[in-house]
């Protein structure tokens, strides 16, 4: 198997190398890729969409249809992880609780149906140490991370950034909460149902904007149709349309990241993660 694998790899590598002979030189400004389609994006973006960040303009407008499906891919991955892993039904097994005033940890066997409350706090089986420094440090960081994420989404027109990047950062902030405290705390902030519905809503904002354009008489995802709704000229409407769909992307990506993390880290039981 190893020899056969090596042979296959060398053969396909040789085939790929063979083709590089006829590639244009690296960084050549007169290569076909730089001359055929892309110059129009660079030269016309400002007058056609009023977005200085060309990548954002191409991503969400010229090839916005790709991006809609890209968001759908993420949404689909979230649904697949849920479908595969989520264990619905009561949780069983042993639990650890900490008595808050004294810091004593107790071990409850067969805790199904029972739960201690009041002065007791449930803790993860594999994560018994109580670390004030980590909790506090993360608590301070999380709001700043979230504000930065919103900046990345909102400023995607002018600087590197946009819905995907901002959404991932937003999702990371919630995942950080889940890691520094525990999964149950994160779930109390943003529950399973909320995540699942937000995920669908995010992508729906994208596809719905496209469908709105269609309903207003232009082609699907032709944001210029939004001009009459937004009360602007068609070019600015494109810029605003991009912002709307980027927001949708941000929501969808954030929710899906959290959803996948919740399912994968707790193997679908939603009680104890990592």
């Amino acid at each position: 198997m190893k020899k056969l694998g090596l042979l296959l790899v060398i053969l396909s590598g040789a085939l790929l190398l063979y083709a590089t002979v006829d590639f244009p030189l690296w960084g050549d400004p007169s290569s076909p890729a730089s001359l055929h389609v892309s110059p129009r994006y660079i030269e016309k973006t400002m007058e056609e969409t009023s977005v200085p960040n060309i990548v954002t303009a191409v991503l969400a407008d010229y090839r916005g249809f790709d991006t809609m499906f890209e968001t759908t891919v993420i949404f689909g991955a979230g649904v697949v992880c849920f479908l595969l892993l989520r264990v619905l039904g009561g949780e069983e097994g042993d639990h650890y609780y900490r008595h808050l005033p004294t810091g004593v940890t107790i071990h409850v066997k067969g805790a199904k149906g029972k739960s201690l409350s009041g002065e007791f706090e449930r803790i993860d089986m594999l994560w018994t140490p109580y670390d004030l420094v980590i909790k506090t440090a993360c608590r301070i960081m999380i709001p700043f991370i979230q504000i930065y994420a919103l900046y990345v989404i909102a400023h995607g027109h002018h600087s590197p950034g946009g819905g995907f990047q901002g959404g991932v950062i937003l999702g990371a902030s919630v995942i950080l909460l889940a890691i520094s405290q525990n999964l149950r705390t994160a779930l109390r902030r943003i529950g399973e149902k909320t995540v699942g519905i937000l995920c669908a809503i995010g992508v729906f904002i994208y596809a719905g904007t496209g469908a709105l354009c269609l309903a207003l008489g232009r082609n699907f995802l032709d944001y210029a149709a939004l001009a009459s709704v937004l009360g602007t000229d068609p070019v600015t409407a494109r810029s605003h349309g991009i912002l709307i769909v980027e927001t949708g992307v941000g929501i969808a990506v954030m929710a899906t990241m959290i959803w996948i993390y919740n399912n994968v880290s707790s193997a679908g039981r939603y009680d104890e993660g990592l």
């Binding site: 949404f75 729906f204 596809a207 269609l214």
Partner: peptide, 25 residues
Amino acid sequence: HHFPALLVIAPLLSAFFISGAGWLN
């Protein structure tokens, strides 16, 4: 005129509604 888009968009949009309905009803 919009049938080519509708062809793909109708199932796509319904996927989000179905996902939501899966949680609600």
